[in-house]
């Protein structure tokens, strides 16, 4: 029998690939019945984010991301997380700065002293990919496959520090890069609308929110608005994620704050500058005190720290409605 030829392989650790194990997990844990999954952010994170989990978030802290859920993960002082840090801006730095992280699969993050020091001192281990390759890995996980061939990434030094392999393609005979599928333990996703069962609508561009929902063992959806299931049925083509992929639904107006939620509110410029500054200058502890530790919840933060006036201002600047209609 002809042997498959591995031409090169990265030496990076990667999350164990186990598509049959994932299928069995899905069989045993994903609710097929339409039951309400509505709960508080506190309950959702307590129940579905465990120390040691592999965590992905869709989009990021500054752009239609699950910002309130990320803050709750920090507030609950989760530890030893492995982050899928694709297209991440400040989220990786906040979670690393809060001591929640031990491993990072890197696509892109806003660098700064916090992550740099953590990597240099060995508190955090980084493995190298790219945004697209990370999204492709999640795609493979969502397809129930063990790996996915990609036409990028080969020849880079990132390849050396990743779980990628270069093989001779058995069909064309040409070299082809394979990357391991990713089935995260938990995905945090922020939606425009969802019903209480988890049928969720996300409008606008994105990174890999649908794929992450299918690929992840535990899926927490935070949503700007809870809609009736009848509303979902009125326009099924707009359902981004069906209920049976979802484990928790958290009703969280301004859940993407300080980032933009297209069609609903703009990003809070002052806050964005504050958090980017904190990342670049190493002031993350001060930032976390103000917006995470010194308040009990997202609702309290919006009420007491952010306030009505800023909510009014960012809502007023969301002038573009086309495509994000309710």
């Amino acid at each position: 029998m002809p042997q498959l030829k591995i031409l090169a392989e990265g030496k990076g650790e990667y999350l164990k690939v186990d598509p049959d194990g994932y299928r069995e997990y899905v069989r045993d844990h994903k609710q097929r019945a339409m039951v309400s999954k509505l709960m508080s952010e506190k309950e959702a994170v307590e129940k579905f984010v465990a120390n040691g989990d592999y965590l992905v978030y869709e989009c990021n802290y500054l752009q239609r991301g699950p910002s309130s859920l990320i803050r709750e993960v920090i507030r609950q002082k989760k530890e030893d997380l492995w982050l899928g840090a694709k297209f991440t801006w400040v989220a990786a730095a906040l979670l690393v700065g809060a001591g929640c992280v031990s491993k990072l699969d890197v696509g892109f993050f806003l660098f700064g002293p916090v992550v740099e020091e953590a990597i240099r001192e060995g508190r955090v281990k980084a493995y190298e990919y790219s945004n697209v390759v990370m999204s492709n890995r999640i795609m493979a996980g969502a397809m129930g496959l063990p790996f996915i061939p990609v036409r990028s990434f080969g020849g880079t030094d990132g390849f050396q520090y990743s779980g990628a392999k270069l093989i001779e393609d058995p069909y064309t005979g040409q070299p082809i890069t394979l990357v391991p599928a990713l089935n995260p333990d938990v995905a945090l996703i922020h939606a425009h609308q969802a019903d209480i069962y988890g049928n969720a609508r996300i409008f606008g561009t994105g990174i890999s929110h649908v794929e992450s929902a299918y690929a992840s063992k535990k899926v927490i959806i935070s949503t700007e608005e809870i809609v009736d299931t009848e509303e979902i049925k009125r326009d099924p083509a707009r359902t981004s994620i069906p209920y049976y992929a979802v484990d928790a639904v958290v009703h969280t107006p301004f859940g993407a704050y300080p980032g933009e939620m297209q069609g609903r509110y703009a990003s809070d410029m002052g806050h964005v500058i504050e958090v980017v500054g904190a990342t670049m200058r190493g002031w993350i502890p001060k930032y976390l005190d103000k917006y995470v530790y010194d308040v009990a919840s997202h609702a309290e933060m919006m009420d007491k720290v952010v306030g009505y006036e800023r909510m009014r201002e960012i809502t007023g600047r969301a002038t573009i409605k086309e495509g994000y209609s309710v």
Partner: peptide
């Protein structure tokens, strides 16, 4: 350390 390739790769 810098932020990684992002989409550039």
């Amino acid at each position: 350390r810098f932020g990684g390739p992002g989409g550039a790769d």
